[in-house]
Simulated assay, not measured.
Amino acid sequence: MSAQLQPLERWRLLLGEAAHNELCGSSGTGEGGGLSAETLAMDRALEWLYGREGEGRDLLQRERSADLGASALSIPDWINQVHTLFPRETIERLERDAVEHYRITELVTRPEVLQRVQPSQALLEAVLHTKHLMNPEVLAMARELVAKVVQQLIEALAIELQQAFSGVRNRRQHTRHASARNFDAAATLRANLKHYDPERRRLVIERALFNSRSARHLERWQIILVVDQSGSMVSSVIHSAVTAACLSRLPGIDTHLLAFDTQVVNLTDERSDPVELLMKVQLGGGTDIQKAMRYAADLIEAPRRAIVVLISDFYEGGPEHRLVRVVADLVAQGSRVLGLAALDQDATPAYDRAMAARLVEVGAEVGAMTPGQLAGWLAEVLRRNG
């Protein structure tokens, strides 16, 4: 949860829509009636669960009778929303009420439900949020779904990595292998000027020239991915695991993967198996970013050939000046520090902009990227400094 609720907002969420006019007044305009977008989303998530009180029907019947309006939520959608919107203690209460009181157990206890669902990233995120509630049979089926989605992500990213890290054009040497992206227009023009027809004002191309490609021979680099495993960062956790798996297959690159909340877990040994890695991740908890960054700093062997990629919303739970100091020290020793507020296919982050600005002031680069964009950024850094 990124914003602190005001007392009236808390009472509004507790009492529901029936108390809206009494607490928020009737002057609010628009769909939220004066509520912020985040508070409105929280209200909808609570209504999805507690609004079924006394209805006397199970979730599947409720969902079959629901319309297709924007407020309708699937089970995975609801799980992912509450893990983004609420603090950990509230999430635990909501999950307990959902399973024990309202018997919303389809995703976590019914194998037949997992058999008919379509693998997707939304489902993968919901599995990661609720795997601690699953019995062994359901967990085994969930693992198969995770594997299918991860394989799809790896195949897509592998193509982008291959393009980013493929050989560069060698403009000093030409090849007979014709490829549009290797076409040397300037050299082709010079080589065929003698075939220019002044009467028809046309240049006849008798021979097109194409640049050859030379493989990049990179000196060894360290790339350290430092991933915030708070509930709101689940999409970035997934793509970080996939990215680490793909990068670890590239020659000349030593890839590390760290996950953190208030503690740091070194997942480097599991980076080649992102499915197993994701099933081990424990989402939620506090945030101690500086501790994770100091752990990363201790792994660096050659500072000027190290890149530390911090993937976090930058909401620091510990003293902020310590995080700023460790980033400043990394930059001063010649290491590159890239802070990503999101690493996923949407690259639309919600983060502490003030903290991000402080990190930029001491030399870090901050942004949001898709995994493919990160691959391109890394390839460009390695090429300029290789």
Rank of each mutant, 00 (worst) to 15 (best):
R64N: 06
E137W: 04
V327K: 00
Q61F: 12
N182C: 15
Q333E: 14
E316R: 06
G231I: 14
T175M: 07
V226Q: 00
R57G: 09
Q290R: 10
E144G: 11
L85T: 07
V331W: 01
E125F: 05
E365W: 10
T370Y: 09
T370F: 10
R172I: 06
R202S: 09
S235G: 10
P198A: 11
V234G: 01
R294C: 15
I307W: 00
G286P: 11
L145M: 12
N211P: 03
R172N: 01
M141N: 05
G33P: 03
G284T: 08
R64V: 12
V149Y: 04
D288L: 15
A178Y: 03
A302I: 13
A292D: 00
M1A: 13
F183L: 15
T268K: 00
D313H: 07
E112Q: 15
R190G: 10
L5Y: 04
S65Y: 07
L59R: 09
Q6C: 14
L23H: 01
I253H: 00
V127C: 13
E301K: 03
N266L: 13
A244P: 01
T109N: 09
L85V: 11
Y295D: 04
D254R: 00
L299W: 01
E160Y: 05
Q162T: 11
A158D: 13
G367T: 08
H20E: 14
P303E: 05
M355E: 04
L23V: 09
L374T: 02
G339A: 11
H83R: 03
D58W: 00
E112C: 06
D298L: 14
F260V: 09
K131G: 06
T109Y: 05
S232C: 06
E270K: 07
L378W: 02
N182T: 10
M141Y: 03
R96C: 11
Q163T: 12
T90N: 04
W377R: 06
A356F: 07
G56N: 06
S232W: 08
A292W: 01
V146K: 03
A41E: 13
S240D: 02
V149S: 05
N135K: 10
G317I: 08
I311M: 02
E38T: 15
Y196C: 08
V360W: 07
V381P: 01
E137Q: 15
T90Y: 03
A142M: 03
L359R: 00
Y315R: 11
L374P: 02
P76S: 03
V264Q: 02
A191E: 02
R44K: 02
